[in-house]
């Protein structure tokens, strides 16, 4: 049972790092980014390429940097224009972008599953009570904790974080105070994409790499964001942790309906609170 709870934390942590990027992008740009799964997948493949050259830590840095820059370019070329478009246009464009990213990765690395081995320094197990647990999985939990703490501190304690919080509620008033909200949005989309890249590379040793890996996790990521409440960082954290637990406990205790459990949770939460667990009421 302890192992299942720890595995739930691993999955929840990975989901959070991915989903919080979606929350950031939606908060500033009001764009529901269906390409986010593609950024996760691209992060994993960029990490795979960098791993061969400089090892695991180089893979982490490369994914964050490459995806961060890619996010800024994406904001300038796509998201800024999408901000004033109908929601259906946003869905079609970002979904199309996801397919373009999948085709790009397939043309470079092929369709076959690739494996990303756990780095030797982080392999092995550690005893937790009566059970032994893989060190790497604890590292994933630690990475999620660092992202939660770092992001919270940035948003709460820094000037840029204050501008991000203000702009997510009222971009016009924020701009009236002298904040260049366009640059701020580009920065935030860059951070969101970098987090998607980070989640992709830390998930890589746990999953097989394939061009469609982003589409699969995208659904659960959206469930996290919607259940937590659109635009709520704390809501996304709570939802990711709950869904992480339900995902793993579901696989053990109700394997036949395990994949439906997060969806059932989301429907239940939305009936109870249409704005999500911690979302602002419209």
């Amino acid at each position: 049972m302890l192992v299942q709870i720890l595995n739930g934390l691993v999955y929840g942590g990975m989901l959070y790092v991915l989903s919080v990027g979606l929350v950031l992008i939606f908060g500033l740009r009001r764009v529901v980014n269906f390409a986010h799964g593609g950024l996760f997948m691209l992060g994993a493949y960029v990490g795979y390429a960098a791993y061969g050259i400089g090892g695991f830590w180089a893979a982490i840095v490369a994914s964050i940097v490459v995806l961060g820059i890619f996010g800024i370019v994406l904001d300038r070329l796509v998201f800024r224009a999408l901000q004033k478009q109908e929601p259906m246009v946003t869905v079609l464009v970002t979904f199309g972008l996801l397919m373009v990213l999948e085709d790009f990765v397939q043309s470079v690395w092929g369709k076959d599953l690739l494996t990303f081995t756990t780095p030797p320094s982080l392999s092995g197990t550690v005893a937790i009570g009566a059970v032994s647990f893989p060190v790497y999985r604890l590292v994933v939990i630690a990475a999620a904790v660092i992202v939660v703490g770092g992001l919270s501190a940035w948003l709460k304690l820094s000037r840029a974080g204050l501008y991000v919080r203000a702009s997510s509620v009222d971009p016009v008033t924020t701009a009236m105070q002298g904040v260049d909200t366009e640059h701020l949005s580009a920065l935030v989309v860059g951070v969101g994409a970098a987090l998607a890249g980070l989640s992709g590379v830390i998930a890589a040793p746990l999953l097989a790499l394939s061009p469609s890996m982003g589409s699969t996790i995208l659904i659960e990521s959206f469930i996290v964001v919607v259940t937590g409440g659109l635009g709520s960082f704390t809501g996304a954290f709570v939802a990711a942790m709950v869904i992480g637990q339900l995902h793993n406990l579901g696989v053990v205790f109700v394997p036949n309906i395990a994949s439906m459990v997060p969806l059932i949770l989301m429907v239940g939460v939305l009936i109870w609170r249409p704005a999500g667990l911690l979302g602002a009421k419209a």
């Binding site: 204050l162 203000a166 509620v169 008033t173 924020t174 009236m176 002298g178 904040v179 909200t181």
Partner: peptide, 27 residues
């Protein structure tokens, strides 16, 4: 551009006040 006005020395108290709801008074 909206953000350049305040930077160049023109500050506005907007109609309806437009206090940012998720920030404290100090923020």
């Amino acid at each position: 551009r909206t953000f350049t006005a305040a930077r160049s020395g023109l500050s506005v108290v907007p109609q309806g006040r437009r206090i940012v709801s998720n920030l404290t008074v100090r923020e």
